[in-house]
Design a protein around this nucleic acid. Sequence first.
DNA 1: GTCTATACCGGGATAGAC
DNA 2: GTCTATCCCGGTATAGAC
Lengths: 202, 202
Amino acid sequence: MQTEISQTDKSRDRILSSAALLFCEHGYAGVSMRKIAENCEMKAGSLYYHFTSKDQILTEVLNIGIQKVHAAVADALSDTPKDTLAIDKLRRAVSGHLHALLENSSFTSANVRIFRQVPEEIQLSNLDVRRAYEALWEKFLIELKEAGHLHANVDPRSLRLMLIGALNATLEWFDPKLGEISELADRYTNILANGMLRERNL
Amino acid sequence: MQTEISQTDKSRDRILSSAALLFCEHGYAGVSMRKIAENCEMKAGSLYYHFTSKDQILTEVLNIGIQKVHAAVADALSDTPKDTLAIDKLRRAVSGHLHALLENSSFTSANVRIFRQVPEEIQLSNLDVRRAYEALWEKFLIELKEAGHLHANVDPRSLRLMLIGALNATLEWFDPKLGEISELADRYTNILANGMLRERNL
DNA sequence: GTCTATACCGGGATAGAC
DNA sequence: GTCTATCCCGGTATAGAC
């Protein structure tokens, strides 16, 4: 049984966390190896013992970012009783995504912020984990549709893109020090589920 | 009457358009003065005849980005007949925002992509135009609320943040060459207005 | 594993010719 | 108005001491 964490692993993690935070704040090109090193109290040259290049750090940050939010939403959707209301399942998934995005780690937020600005080859290396996460939501929404919970003219794919887009955009303005993530999740769930208008419009 | 466009003005516009496009694609720090110059068939030194610094170009790009989307939405909301349905006004505003964001110019999309990553002082210099645009939406949504068109538990400010966030996020995946913006606007308007679930949930 | 020192390149910006 | 030439800084990455 091997549960000790080596010094190497600790340094690796510190480097990745620092990079994620800085990428999120200043963009990929706006962050230098020197600043990443400074942020974890090392010197720039030392980073190359753990990673072969800045691109490799970036690639790992992007992958971890999706894996974390995937795990959060999968957990939120897993142990729900059979008779859970559709809106409550939705609320759990929304809440899981928002927590992963807005608190704890910067990996998910770094991914959301910089994905489209990094070199295309690196975007491609992030596609597998992205598709797996998209499939998780798609499966959930298709099940709602087939159980008759969605309006007839709502397409699961379009809905997923809008929904995740709306959640990701909270990154631009929401400050977890000033507001409760659970309340945010409730408000978003309410509007997504019931809409904003009182009259039903076709 | 002075309608001629001087060579100076033409060059200025080309520089700003090139910068907007490149900022949008690669982020602020990811774009060099040399690349901006190359993109409008000039040399880097020439840019400094028109602008004193890269930051000045950035500042103008950000301001123009908001001004364009503001004008588009203001136009969409202006000449509507008095008896226009709430959902139709919403559709017009949504459509105006999406057209400004996804076609024609890169100024608005550059703003959405890079705003949070630029130096704080430059974010501050963009605040006035941003607040004016936010006020346009807020006014529209408060009028809907006071006319009794919004659900009681829907707060105009939260709604605005969610709504504009959802629209801005389309930038990450929508390709105007592959889909119709008007159809996108319809789908978003429908879900925002009526929600996704058939059952009404409180 | 982390350091210092350094190579080499491309960044923003300026000066002065045309 | 645009060019070329150049300055100085900070970028990524490597080599070798400790």
